[in-house]
Design a protein around this nucleic acid. Structure first.
Length: 525
RNA sequence: GGCCCAUUAGCUCAGUUGGCAGAGCGGGAGCCUUUUAAGCUCCGCGUCGCAGGUUCGAGUCCUGCAUGGGUCACCA
């Protein structure tokens, strides 16, 4: 492994550490039993209220005259700033709770001259350390720990690209030359997380979001399950799959593109409310809102129809927003420069009305692909080339994508979808060409998709066969076991799927899905 | 996949008309007993993304490739 100049310097330092008989990578921290989080250490320092001056600094035990406990405790974490000034040394130590300053002083009774020199010469920014000490405030008012003993916990060889920070008069923090190259940040996410605290915050919010959804589902009587990721047949969505192979069985397998067909089998097995949160894989384009693997929640609820699901969805998304957004925001957040109001009732509109509103075209007046396609070209909404070969449903879906989706900033449900792009959804009783389906949009992005599920095995089989005739490479495969399951009797039910990553983007105001996935897909590597 | 832009030190970036590779931060050596973008003195640490080409001479111009970003196409 090739080392750069500063890495070679660190390697030399590592040899010195070893020569001193110090283990630069000890197996454990020494004082974990006395550990206090940095934020608590800082609080204790603040409550001492004593700005130690040079006189009483020689007797740290007497530095505080308050009742606040000043007995020694330990803080462990990472050195993110170090500054030795002559015979005193300052270092900021960061742990998961925040940071606190370590203060070492040559001449303190509690810290030997040798240990001071070693601290000064061996410890660098990036190293993991622990120290025992007593809390106090420096002259500048900085909550600090006057250290009496310390250990190196892990030596950093490669320097962290830590940015310098300057406190502005208004209290905000200005950062200089922060580690910002997206390529490096995503490839070396560990570095990104180590030096950019706001990146850690994204994933804390994401975890809260998932927990909020899980709590909501559990409290509404849903059973969480896990179904196969490796599937002999893929289905439940229109997407190309990743293919793999089981060697011993000599069997091709697919990574799932959805959980739908397995979860609905469970309804046949008398599990009435079921959900899964997990990973889907789609072998398609990568964009700011598409990653080849992404996290989805799907649920299915017996006896519900699409409108009951819509109502439940609204409450679920609001529960997720509540779990992430600070209470002071009242459910208002920003996304791509737009304000989103999560707590107001979600808008509801038919697909026909939405497209009518944005294109002046009422597609219900054109009953087949030929007449609708001709009208679309006539009104100059799409080129003849793009219209060619599309079914009526795909034309409508294209109009939605081109003219409506970007405008749906506030939470909005669009419903009444064409049947031919919805092979697993139940038709409306009075309009067989339309299905009981909705999609939810927020921030101009499609977020979720739901419908009254088709539970008629004969209708379902015919839909699969119709898909095959279309010759589309994203067509649903005929899953005979799924049809068999349905023949045993599937209760009427409503189903739902939602991209968790996109919801995380919306709630953290991130422009790209890569910001909310810890290790997003990148080429070569 | 098409088009456009970018890629220079560990990080963030400058680099003029083709003429010795630069700055700040970081790092090293030294000074400094309450610093906090600490300060002061000295030190540049480099496969200018990769491979070719043009030229006396290429970080700079040309071609191809790689990676990233934007955009269009595609995409439940």
């Amino acid at each position: 492994m090739e080392l750069n100049e500063s890495e070679r310097e660190k390697q030399t330092k590592l040899a010195r550490i070893r020569a001193l008989g110090i283990n630069p990578f000890p197996p454990r921290a020494e004082w974990i039993a006395q550990r206090v989080m940095a934020i608590e250490a800082a609080d204790r320092a603040k409550s001492t209220g004593s700005n130690t001056d040079n006189q009483n600094a020689d007797q740290p035990e007497q530095a505080s005259h308050t009742s606040t406990p000043t007995q020694p405790f330990s803080v462990m974490g990472r050195v993110i700033r170090k500054n030795t000034k002559g015979k005193v040394s300052f270092a900021h130590i960061e742990d998961e709770s925040g940071k606190v300053q370590f203060f070492a002083r040559l001449g303190d009774d509690s810290l030997s001259a040798e240990r001071f020199q070693l601290w000064d010469s061996l410890i660098d920014v990036g190293d993991w350390v622990e120290a025992v000490g007593i809390p106090f405030l420096t002259k500048a008012g900085e909550p600090s720990l006057r250290i009496s003993a310390w250990n190196l916990l892990s030596k950093a060889i490669t320097p962290l690209p830590l940015a310098k920070e300057e406190k502005q008069t208004d209290g905000s923090i200005k950062r200089y030359s922060a580690f910002a190259d997206p390529d490096l940040r995503f490839r070396q996410r560990y570095t990104d997380l180590a030096v950019n605290p706001e990146v850690r915050e994204i994933f804390i919010k994401r975890a809260r979001l998932v927990k909020g959804i899980r709590d909501f589902m559990d409290s509404n009587g849903f059973l969480e399950v896990e179904t196969p990721i490796l599937q002999p047949l893929y289905g439940g969505a229109a997407a190309r799959p990743f293919t793999t192979h089981h060697n011993q069985l000599d069997q091709d397998l697919y990574l799932r593109i959805s959980y739908e067909l397995y979860l609905k089998r469970l309804l046949v097995g008398n599990i009435e409310r079921v959900y899964e949160i997990g990973r889907d894989f789609r072998n398609e384009g990568v964009s700011f809102k598409h990653n080849p693997e992404f996290t989805q929640i799907e649920f299915y609820a017996a006896y519900m129809d699409v409108f009951a699901v819509m109502e439940l969805t609204e409450r679920m998304i609001q529960a997720a927003a509540r779990a992430v957004l600070p209470a002071s925001t009242n459910g208002i957040s920003q996304f791509r420069g737009n304000t989103i109001n999560w707590f107001q009732p979600f808008a509801r509109q038919t697909m026909r009305d939405a497209i009518c509103e944005h294109t002046k075209l009422d597609y219900t007046l054109f009953p087949d692909a030929e007449s609708l396609g001709a009208e679309i070209v006539k009104q100059n909404l799409m080129s003849a080339e793009l219209v060619r070969g599309k079914t009526r449903g795909k034309l409508i879906d294209s109009l939605l994508g081109d003219y409506v989706e970007k405008t749906l900033i506030q939470p909005t449900f669009l419903y009444d979808y064409p049947r031919d792009i919805s092979p697993l959804a139940k038709s409306k009783v009075d309009d067989p060409a339309t299905v009981e389906r909705f999609e939810g949009f927020i921030g101009g992005m499609e977020l979720c998709n739901a419908f009254t599920e088709l539970n008629d095995p004969f209708d379902q089989e015919q839909r699969f066969l119709d898909e095959q005739k279309g010759g589309d490479d994203e067509a649903q495969l005929l899953d005979e076991d799924y049809i068999r399951a349905m023949r045993y009797g599937m209760p009427p039910n409503g189903g739902f799927g939602m991209g968790i990553d996109r919801l995380a983007m919306l709630l953290t105001d991130k422009d790209t899905i890569r910001e909310v996935i810890l290790f997003p897909h990148l080429r070569q590597g």
